[in-house]
Amino acid sequence: MNRTADVAALSIGGLEISLVQGGRPVPVVTGVNLSVNKKEVLGLVGESGSGKSLTSLAATRLLDPRVVRTTAGSVKLFGKELLTLPEAEMRRVRGKEIGIIFQDPMTSLDPAFTIGYQLNCGLRWHTDLTRAAARNRVLELLGLVGIGDPRRRVDQYPHQLSGGTRQRVMIAMAIACEPKVLIADEPTTALDATTQAQILELIASLATTMEMATVITTHDLGVVADVCDRVAVMYAGQIVECATTDELFYRPKHPYTERLLQSLPGVRAGRLQGIPGQPPRSGRFPQGCRFAPRCPYARPGCSADDPELTRVQTDHAARCLREAELELTGVGA
């Protein structure tokens, strides 16, 4: 383990993802730049349809190439380019180096196999544990993710488990081979509020104890506050702002982030402020700044130029033409 600290565990640069069904490819994700270091938890926040799942899937090359493809950019795992890796090698990365937790635990587990079998699969492919050792490891993993009575659970089928327990199983699967990178795509969206909090805590504590680089995707900015070290905000297929959690919450530099913060419950004396207007339909992005139609600070110039994701401070970048002149409000201000 002699990896230099300055090489990010996972870094995504200039990622472009396009729908390829019928005719010309239509880009739906453009300009995603992200990097996560070892032991760091990054929150990727954006409205439904902003491209979070596509980004997570592209990073592990799990997109269905008949429908949607990565058309530009790079995904590096400790400096190793993944997008050009032969498929056979990529298979050794999936599950072994990068673990993924999917959005919907109801449909993401195989109904025809016991959870023990499903947990065992990854161990069989990626490690040379004996049958007995693998079984023990499975039981250990179930305990690790907080599932009581693992000996009984291990032979059960997904339909016999609650949503929260299924998501714990998903987490156990993702971390089974001790990956260096963990991607959790909206891990709590399908769960009730109490379970949500528990699952997030679980992921965050595993990230710390296992020293993983973790990406948690969510549409709920409130979720990331508790568990993330850094936050990247996504809008219409682009990263619009990226900063440490405190920095982003207290000193947002993008109007969209400001709006998101203001719509958090509890901020602004309980007044829940939605963001007026609709996000653009994917692939039909407006000219210039994509947030301009909904931005309270928009000027005519905003629709003329494409804003770049610019660094405004160490570890704080924003994609806004008027970033320097605007005084945006964070939380607690």
Partner: peptide, 14 residues
């Protein structure tokens, strides 16, 4: 097309 097939792929299955 099911999600669980994607999950299996994400685990590195051939």
């Amino acid at each position: 097309q099911q999600d669980y097939v994607r999950t299996a792929r994400a685990g590195g299955i051939s």
